[in-house]
Design a protein around this nucleic acid. Structure first.
Lengths: 349, 349
DNA sequence: ATGATATACCTAAACGTTTAGGTATCACAG
DNA sequence: CTGTGATACCTAAACGTTTAGGTATATCAT
């Protein structure tokens, strides 16, 4: 169907391998007359030749494709940002990206596809740690480099996350600076690694910046669904004025939005009577009716750096490098919007 | 490196092609003794054989990969949902999905990659119509089936969108049913096809359900950035009580959120004094402080149906089918939340 | 006239499959 | 004891590249 080197060879009278050399700018193409080279290029152009990467892959044994395996495509908005970062880096380094959705397939099924298709490396991304171990082990056996992104697992390998600890600690510092002392934190119940890190950031921040504030006040959400958090938050905001927190930090923007919703229903004004801080900086933060102060995670950069590390590993592929451990924690940044202010009673106003 | 058919052949003493037949459950495998088949399978298992799809692709001339080409990865939250739908359908039909980001590359560069990598079909997705024509033409020349998703272009080909007209018309109908008569609409200035369709839905709805309401009130936003719409909206809400709209329908959820923000700043209560309706049903709609009534688009379904149509085309590949025109408009659904209610003055309350 | 060197090409083989066709052995009918 | 058909395999070639090596001709010094 498509034009092949053989077709060009037939038309120019030059053998396929010389044609190949010319069209790939292989050094050996220099052995041919400049005029011949020109003629080959011209004919290739005219006939609409595009090289067959599949055939090329077969003979070179390389396949410049990385796999992005995720359980969260279409679930969380940030997954798209991570992908965008991966794509940027991959494109720049001449790698293509294939996507695999864990939800539509079992891990072993995906692992089979990945090996059959001879992907050069795997980037894994999931909000559940469980699936990963299987993929990581299998990839290890098959010598396929593997990295994780936004997955703060404790297991070995290469991976990129954000500095969750620092993020919440910074938030506490900022609130303390505004004069807040009764700060509560909403954490996440199953306590995956990232939730633990954020929680520890809160505890450390309170100890450091609000000394003498006693036992840190932490409540546990059990998930993102809107209604699940309502009792928890309502309870938190129903305390007497003297005990009620003047600020709440949430482990996620969505939870912070829930707080805003319930505060609104309870006629508690934000930020005058209550400051609220989220985590992630999703669109909901910008578009909340009172725009949300939040800890912004650099999702695109996470994607870029993960792809970068993975492709490095692929390119220096040696078995010892497959066992390398490198975890990068990218710094996060507090974005101050309108949901935070100095507390009413104690302070300047 | 990896185990090949030849290795299995060597170990079992059976030639590669018979081994191939067995491992692919090819009918001709039946020519072998059951015992031999078992032995081959066992050895393959033991040696950890996984077939090389690259080699297979080369000899069969097929490559079960579809390309998702988008300019919006990481830009709009719904892109992930569309992808998820595509992946679901593709996985089920044994196709892999490669992703290409228009932003990190030029259209002709991407088109070259697509042909070099011999993808079987292309799904195109962009908020700008421009890029598409080039890709569509080139794909046409190369006989690569091509479909669009969420791109209401007027050009030929296969594509899936939502029924934008119906969506806004339904929204008007619903508001009219609540007793609203002064309904304004915020449209989008460059007026791409989808914006025109939604606008026409508004005009038709007003004519049908709010007869005698005069010239439809339409304002034009010039984009999504928060600050760009503020003067427009502020202006709209600053009219005297007798003239101010009691309801605003927006062409997008983000704009509706802007309306909520500004209404809040202006102390106009939603929904008591103002009803607001968005379009898309993104996360911001659920998490707005007053959860937003909006027209929900079935993004995942769009993805599924697009992939479905594309793969059908790939499988019956004949040149005449490449010119087929099929545009599906999926129905949308009004999701009523808390940003809409009967207007205060005229009506039940 | 001989050999060395450079120039401008060409050939053969390989990558790992699949496809289409071929063959050796045996049982059994006539 | 010849021919037919089934059984259980095997061989050769192809897909489109790339890699490594080979060769024919011309040029020039000795």
């Amino acid at each position: 169907m498509a034009v092949t080197l053989k077709d060009i060879s037939a038309k120019t009278g030059i053998n396929t391998c010389s044609v190949s050399h010319v069209l790939n700018n292989h050094p050996r193409a220099m052995e041919l007359k400049a005029e011949t080279r020109e003629r080959i290029r011209l004919v290739a152009q005219e006939m609409g030749y595009t090289r067959n990467e599949i055939a090329r892959s077969m003979v070179t044994g390389r396949n410049d494709v990385i796999a992005f395996v995720s359980s969260d495509i279409g679930t969380w908005e940030y997954t798209g940002k991570i992908m965008s970062g991966i794509m940027e880096e991959a494109t720049q380094r001449k790698f293509a990206v294939k996507v695999y959705h864990l939800t539509h397939s079992t891990p072993d099924n995906i692992m089979r596809q990945l090996t059959e298709q001879r992907v050069a490396g795997i980037i894994f991304h999931s909000d559940k740690n469980v699936d990963f171990d299987f993929i990581r082990n299998e990839a290890g056996k098959k010598q396929i480099p593997c990295a994780t992104v936004n997955l703060s697992s404790t297991s070995a390998g290469i991976g990129v996350t954000t500095d969750d600890f620092q993020g919440v600690r910074d938030a506490v510092k900022y609130l303390a600076g505004l004069g807040h002392r009764r700060i509560s934190y909403i954490s996440y119940k199953p306590r995956p690694q990232f939730a633990v890190n954020r929680e520890n950031g809160f505890i450390a921040g309170m100890k450091e910046f609000v000394p003498g504030s006693g036992k840190p006040r932490i409540a546990y959400s059990i998930g993102m669904e809107n209604d699940k958090n309502e009792p928890l938050i309502r309870n938190m905001l129903s305390e007497s004025d003297a005990k009620r927190p003047t600020a709440i930090i949430c482990y996620a923007d969505y939870i912070a939005c829930n707080v805003l919703q319930i505060a609104y229903q309870m006629r508690i004004e934000v930020p005058e009577e209550l400051s609220v801080i989220g985590f992630a900086d999703l669109e909901v933060a910008k578009y909340a009716t009172v725009p949300l102060t939040t800890v912004a995670q650099p999702f695109e950069q996470m994607g870029r750096e993960t792809a970068n590390m993975l492709i490095d590993t692929i390119k220096n592929k040696r078995s010892d490098i497959l066992d390398k451990v490198e975890n990068r924690k990218l710094p996060v940044r507090l974005v101050v919007r309108k949901s935070t202010a100095a507390p009413r009673k104690c302070g300047s106003s």
